Amino acid sequence: MPSETPQAEVGPTGCPHRSGPHSAKGSLEKGSPEDKEAKEPLWIRPDAPSRCTWQLGRPASESPHHHTAPAKSPKILPDILKKIGDTPMVRINKIGKKFGLKCELLAKCEFFNAGGSVKDRISLRMIEDAERDGTLKPGDTIIEPTSGNTGIGLALAAAVRGYRCIIVMPEKMSSEKVDVLRALGAEIVRTPTNARFDSPESHVGVAWRLKNEIPNSHILDQYRNASNPLAHYDTTADEILQQCDGKLDMLVASVGTGGTITGIARKLKEKCPGCRIIGVDPEGSILAEPEELNQTEQTTYEVEGIGYDFIPTVLDRTVVDKWFKSNDEEAFTFARMLIAQEGLLCGGSAGSTVAVAVKAAQELQEGQRCVVILPDSVRNYMTKFLSDRWMLQKGFLKEEDLTEKKPWWWHLRVQELGLSAPLTVLPTITCGHTIEILREKGFDQAPVVDEAGVILGMVTLGNMLSSLLAGKVQPSDQVGKVIYKQFKQIRLTDTLGRLSHILEMDHFALVV
């Protein structure tokens, strides 16, 4: 994948999101292997301009796509893939009243899908469409860049269908997702969380590099694949309309690839034109409109599966009536509230959605109805927002919020430890010299600072030695090549209790 991002070429006709291997024109390309080798690009942008032909009021008969309808489940399912879809609609009884809503608040519980998330729908649909058009064949390999849930859905379907599955996901995604993927037989590649989507090191860039190296491999490409919004247009939206008897006044959905909100909203605009569509985008993402909503100094966020630093091709923002931004604290607070007060075992993005819903639905009156999409299960986040310690460490809970008995030293300040200034190293000294210094002084790690004293990161003896043994660096290389740029900081005025929580999850903390 090139470091400079080429513009994806656009073909003359058809839909841009065809499933299957992508040609340089962004659509299915038939021909000899030699032709494909000559024409197939190194990668295709996940934010390529959409060429979708959908228009409100256009006859369904003019759609270029294969459409399906929700099917009634048999008493005995032939395999677990038949437990994807037909998820329950559940009334939220307490939270709406707590925040003064007059309307009825309903939750579409997508964590009841077989793999635990709304992404099971698009995973199965992308595979079925690729099999139907002859792209996927027995023994082929599926590769997908994902925040985890699409990966789980694909790995689940691949396990049943017999495909090899490789999932490329950023490091910030939970260990629970990784464990589930491994249990399903998927191979996992992790990428830096802070890598831009168009960087060769991003999950998108690495996935395309693997595709170019592995024979008979395919990126189904949830960011561009029409099967993504079509899955929701054909099934999720129809289920909502049936469950609500066609009567709903507002739908609120958090947005990642945009397939969920695009597919549902398009069908609702056709069948229930008075329904307002509300999009939820986390602070630090750029999906919301108008652009002024996205202006923030924050560039990272903890909530998973929603928000991006690019506009995915499948996201149709014209069908969203209003956007709201959400933050991590309210997302996790509301997710825990949904679990504790409503018994809905949902993930953090569901918290984002409901946090926005109780604001947006203030305009609705008694007798009206708001539906929220709860995308995934708490299963993926047992060591994250479900953990009091994690919430404390991230600053989303305060010590006084917890009532468990603490040891005698818990409320003492870090400054009472009488710490001395640490050994520091410059980023320009060599790895070999740094190892000598650390061994001589008896230290395992040291902060790396520039000549102005600005902290650049941390270097550890173990990481340097393993990097040297693996051949990633040489003793003569500058130590700046092996620094940890993500590390926890703590102030002298913070409590030892807070430091204790940090050290339970990290090997060190830097006192500043």
Rank of each mutant, 00 (worst) to 15 (best):
I261W: 02
E131C: 02
I152S: 04
K72N: 11
G134A: 10
G151P: 00
Y233H: 09
H232K: 03
L156A: 01
G274C: 02
T146I: 04
A24E: 12
V204C: 06
R45L: 13
S254L: 06
S175K: 08
S19V: 03
R266N: 08
M126L: 14
I122R: 00
E104C: 11
V118K: 06
P16T: 05
K267M: 12
M89G: 03
S23R: 10
H17P: 13
R58K: 11
A195N: 06
H203S: 11
A114R: 06
E34H: 10
I264F: 10
W54E: 06
S217A: 01
Y223Q: 01
K108S: 03
D129G: 05
R91W: 01
I152W: 00
P49A: 10
I80V: 12
I264E: 00
M126S: 01
L101G: 01
L77R: 07
K72W: 03
P59L: 15
Y223S: 00
K267S: 03
G256N: 02
G139E: 01
I219E: 03
I214M: 09
A157P: 06
K39R: 13
V160L: 12
L220S: 03
L56A: 11
S175C: 09
A265D: 01
E37T: 03
K39I: 03
S19C: 04
A107H: 05
A253N: 07
T191W: 00
G139I: 02
F112R: 01
R266L: 02
L230Q: 08
V118N: 06
N225K: 07
L156T: 04
G85M: 01
A130G: 13
W54H: 06
A60H: 11
Q55C: 13
A237G: 14
K25Y: 07
V180E: 06
I122D: 00
D35E: 15
R196T: 10
S217H: 00
E131P: 04
H232I: 04
Y233T: 00
V206Y: 05
D198T: 06
S50Y: 07
T13C: 04
G26L: 13
C275Y: 00
A253T: 14
L28D: 09
T235G: 11
E213R: 11
C165F: 01
G96K: 09
P59K: 09
H66Y: 15
A60C: 09
K177Q: 04
A253Q: 09
E171I: 12
D35Q: 10
L136R: 00
P33A: 06
G151Y: 00
S199Q: 07
C272F: 12
G274W: 14
C52T: 03
K94S: 15
D140L: 02
V204I: 03
G100D: 15
P229K: 05
I122E: 00
A69Y: 12
A207T: 07
M126V: 11
S123A: 09
P145G: 12
L230R: 03
T5I: 12
G31W: 15
S61W: 09
C165E: 01
D79I: 09
H22F: 15
T53Y: 04
S147D: 04
A60Y: 11
A186I: 03
L230T: 08
E110Y: 01
C52S: 03
I261A: 12
G263Y: 00
P49Y: 03
T87R: 06
A69F: 14
I240K: 00
L106H: 08
A69S: 05
G259Y: 00
Q55F: 03
K137P: 03
G14M: 11
T236P: 05
P21W: 13
P273Q: 08
V178L: 05
T146M: 04
H65S: 00
G96D: 11
L230N: 13
G139W: 07
I95K: 00
T260P: 01
V255R: 02
K83M: 07
K72F: 09
K94L: 14
N194F: 13
P88R: 05
G11F: 04
L28V: 14
G115F: 07
I127T: 09
A157H: 04
R161F: 07
K82E: 12
Q242V: 11
T191R: 00
D35P: 10
F112L: 06
I188E: 04
L210F: 07
F111Q: 02
I264N: 14
C272L: 11
D140Q: 04
E34Q: 12
D86I: 09
P21Y: 02
F111I: 04
I261S: 01
W208H: 10
H203G: 01
Q55E: 13
G85L: 03
R276I: 08
M169V: 06
P49M: 08
A183G: 13
A183E: 08
